[in-house]
Amino acid sequence: MLFSQARKRDVVNTATATRVARVDGFVVLPGPARVALLRLGKVSGAGTLLAWEDVRGFGPDAVTVATDAVIRPPRDGLEQRAEDNDLEILGKRVLTERGMELGSITDVDFDPETGAVTTLITKTETLAGQRMIGLGGYAVVVSD
């Protein structure tokens, strides 16, 4: 499933059968490349992050959670940066470990079952998710 397709999807609490938030973005972490957190909008509480482990299902129409309590504020520096959009992968430049730029990320393909990132997509390249070494404020670094 592509990030572009999965964005704006509703987050539904299965206990109350109510819509509790909307998916605004994805926080990808390397080693192995995976969706670690979802960034949410239209939330009722203070928190906007949802850990992948707390997602019950990532379906074609909605993302389900067991309780609203799993939607939480950042716990550490890394999560804070994720919430501040500093680590947003879409639009980030891709550098190889040899210092060559391969364009900017336009979309990401991931497995909605596991959260594993399968493909990074730029305007000119499609890169296997396993090639991702690092993701920082400046660039996504991929192996050669």
């Binding site: 390397p30 980030k92 550098l95 470990e97 210092g99 070494i133 690092g134 993701l135 920082g136 404020g137 400046y138 660039a139 996504v140 670094v141």
Partner: peptide, 11 residues
């Protein structure tokens, strides 16, 4: 003038 970038993607 080239950027120095870590493998974790930080400038």
């Amino acid at each position: 003038g080239r950027p120095v970038v870590t493998l974790s993607g930080e400038l």
